[in-house]
């Protein structure tokens, strides 16, 4: 165990952390959108990711569809799933207050987790592709191809969501309603429709994150909750209600984790992340980046 990594190792850690963090970030964007728009803390987000991961697993296994192409299937399916979840469940429960929606999300998490256990067993699965193990070198730094692909995909998804929120009427309505629901109604915006769209996008982002994850990491049904927590931490780091902030928060978390597992020990990486999370909640509830990230 060396406390002072060499420069090359240091860069390697940062790059690995960034790859890891991008996935947290994408999941966090969905979570942050949903929370911003309807104050629902959707802790089943990570479980949705794992559901996507298993779907890819099956698509590869039964139909030999490349995971990257499966994104094109996963995204629409998850959009519809999100829409249905909001319309069928969250819309009616949202009047009962935040603890009810939290509980509902929790119930969904337990339900999906155990469904997945039932269908896919608790064994750890992974998705193998032709490029799973390929990598290239830049100086002393190794970059795995699949990780790079995943990061690019995540980047594209983030940009699309950003542009959607910034450029379209619906996107602007989402941002408006997130700030003031009643005023939205006074302008002729149907807040339930907007929320349903937001929820759908949030779930689709979980789908993207799930596809990205399964390309790199082995997974099991319990993995989801861990990812939900990580996404929450990422939001706390980046500040609520901003797409860029959530992604950046995820990357900060990823780097923090890979740094602490190198310098201290992998076992403690999680605890350090939680401790940082609580510290951030206490001292900078607006996020590490504060106002700067307050825009979109």
């Amino acid at each position: 165990m060396s406390y002072f990594p060499s420069l090359a190792v240091f860069f390697q850690i940062i790059i690995n952390g960034t790859f890891l963090g991008t996935m947290y970030g994408v999941a966090a964007i969905g979570l942050s959108l949903i929370f911003g728009c309807m104050q629902v803390l959707f802790i089943a987000q990570g479980t949705m990711m794992i559901l996507a991961a298993y779907s890819v697993f099956w698509l590869v296994y039964f139909m030999s569809i490349d995971p990257l192409i499966s994104i094109l299937i996963i995204i629409p399916v998850f959009l519809v799933l999100g829409w249905i979840m909001y319309k069928g469940m969250f819309q009616r429960v949202s009047q009962a207050g935040p603890s009810s929606t939290l509980l509902l999300a929790f119930g969904l998490m337990v339900f999906m987790e155990s469904m997945m256990l039932f269908i896919w067993s608790p064994n750890i699965r992974s998705v193998k592709t032709s490029y799973s193990t390929s990598a290239f070198q830049i100086g002393d730094i190794t970059i795995s191809v699949s990780r790079l692909i995943v990061t690019v995909v995540a980047g594209i998804a983030t940009c699309l969501v950003y542009l959607f929120l910034k450029k379209t009427m619906t996107g602007k309505a989402i941002r408006g309603v997130s700030e003031d629901r009643v005023t939205g109604m006074l302008l002729g915006i149907n807040p339930n429709r907007v929320s349903a769209i937001t929820f759908a996008i949030g779930i689709a982002m979980a789908g993207v994150a799930g596809v990205a994850t399964c390309l790199i990491y082995p997974f099991d049904p319990y993995f989801g909750f861990l990812f939900s927590l990580k996404a929450l931490i990422a939001i706390a780091f980046g500040g609520l209600g901003s797409v860029g902030g959530a992604l950046l928060g995820g990357i900060i978390l990823g780097i923090l984790e890979s740094l602490s597992s190198y310098t201290i020990s992998p076992g403690w990486a999680d605890a350090i992340a939680y401790a940082a999370f609580i510290l951030v909640l206490i001292f900078r509830p607006q996020g590490l980046l504060g106002k700067a990230a307050d825009k979109v």
């Binding site: 309505a173 941002r175 408006g176 700030e179 003031d180 005023t183 006074l186 302008l187 002729g188 915006i189």
Partner: peptide, 17 residues
């Protein structure tokens, strides 16, 4: 009750939702 995080233009645009 403006949308304070949105720009003036965006507020106006949402008026024509």
């Amino acid at each position: 009750h403006l949308f304070t995080k949105l720009t003036v233009l965006e507020n106006l645009e949402l008026g024509a939702y």
